[in-house]
Structures are given as C-alpha cells and as structure tokens.
C-alpha cells in the first residue's frame, strides 16, 4: 500500500459517500444515471467474489463489502425509494453496447480462463466504461448539479491516482498488471473532458454547464 493507492481508495470512498448524501439529503436522484449505477453494482459484485475465497487483509475485505453494499443501496434508493425523482427520460444510453463487447473481451483477454478470473477481468473492463451512461446524461441535459460534479470528480480521480500507484509499484516492486493498467488509462481518459470543465467552472464557483 503506497500513498497513491490509499489516496485513490479514499477518493473512491468519498465519491460514493457524496452520491449517497446527495440522494439522501435532497430526497432526489435527479441527474444521476441509474444505468451507470447498475453497471457499477455489476462491477463490484463480479470483482469482489474473491471475498469468499481469499482473505487479503481486514482493510481489503471491509472496502469490498462497503463497495458492494453501497452500490446495492444506491440502486435501491434510485429504483425504489426515490423512484419518482429518477430522470429516466434522459438516461437512455444503451448498456448492451458496453456489456456485450466487455463480456467478449473478458472471455478473450484475461490472465487465466477460470470463472473467478474471467469475472474479475470482465469487471475491470466494465468499470473502465461504466461511467459513459452518466457522462452521456450530463451531455444530454447540458448541465449537472454541483454536488453531482463533485461526485464525478472524485470517481474519476480515483482511477487516475491508481495509475500513479501502478507507476510506483512498477518501479519499486517490479509489479504490474497490464489488464488493470490499460483499462485504468482508458477509464481516466474518458473523464478528461469532464475534468477540464470541472476545473475551469466548478472550482471557480460556477455551475457545470456545457458550452452550447
């Protein structure tokens, strides 16, 4: 565990807490893509099945349980408790366009052709693109609430920090995982446009409105 990895995990944790607080405090999930949240729940449940087979550390297990349970809680809030506030008219990204290629890629390019390993690989590939329905929704409506943009920033920052963690691990531990690195870079690149808007607008106290 190095400082980049820890900062990345904390950023990820913060993103999820911001999202849940936004939904809970405003009693609304307006502006949040339910499709992205379903993809994230799928990412965590397929990746963390090793909770039942391997024990790595208490930190590792607690975080895994947190990510699985909060992603399920988010879906419950969006599709059950605050269903009336869910903006499904703007949440129209076809997730089959992501799920089908990611499944094929997971079956073809993996470290080991075993169920757990293929599911882990699938979840890494899926995570890299899972934010697309959310970004599509923001571009469709042309804006995002400030709290939603904080959530997106923390979520994007987490994988960017992991890239620094991988550079560190490569130099100091000789460890690298090409599948995670390539997917992590793709994931971070997808946020670049948003990062630019966040830094130029939200940090200066303006609302996140897309240029017309």
């Amino acid at each position: 565990m190095n400082v980049f990895r820890l900062a990345g995990d904390l950023s990820h944790l913060l993103a999820i807490i911001i999202l849940l607080l936004k939904i809970w405090k405003t009693r609304s999930c307006a502006g949040i893509s339910g499709r992205s949240q379903i993809l994230f729940a799928l990412v965590y449940t397929t990746r963390y099945l090793d909770l039942f087979t391997n024990f790595i550390s208490l930190y590792n297990s607690v975080m895994k349980v947190f990510f699985i349970s909060t992603s399920c809680a988010t879906i419950y809030l969006m599709y059950v408790k605050f269903k009336a506030t869910y903006d499904h008219n703007h949440d129209t990204f076809r997730i089959g366009f992501l799920l089908i290629p990611v499944t094929i890629l997971g079956l073809l390019i993996n470290h080991d052709f075993t169920p757990l390993e293929v599911l882990w690989t699938f979840s890494i590939y899926l995570e890299s693109v899972a934010i697309l329905p959310q970004l599509f929704m923001v571009s469709k409506t042309g804006d995002a609430e400030t709290i939603t943009s904080h959530y997106l920033f923390c979520l994007g920052l987490y994988r960017a920090l992991y890239i620094f963690n991988w550079i560190y691990r490569y130099y100091f531990e000789g460890f690298y995982d090409l599948i995670a690195i390539v997917a992590g870079v793709v994931q971070t690149v997808l946020y670049c446009d948003f990062f630019y808007l966040y830094v130029t607008r939200v940090i200066k106290g303006k609302a996140l409105k897309l240029p017309a």
Binding site: D50, M63, W120, D177
Partner: peptide, 10 residues
C-alpha cells in the same frame, strides 16, 4: 497453476 490470481487492489 493457481486457481485464481491474487488481486490485492480494489
């Protein structure tokens, strides 16, 4: 031949 590769990252 490991059944699964240990992934310590989240």
């Amino acid at each position: 031949n490991r059944y699964t590769i240990l992934h310590d990252e989240l």
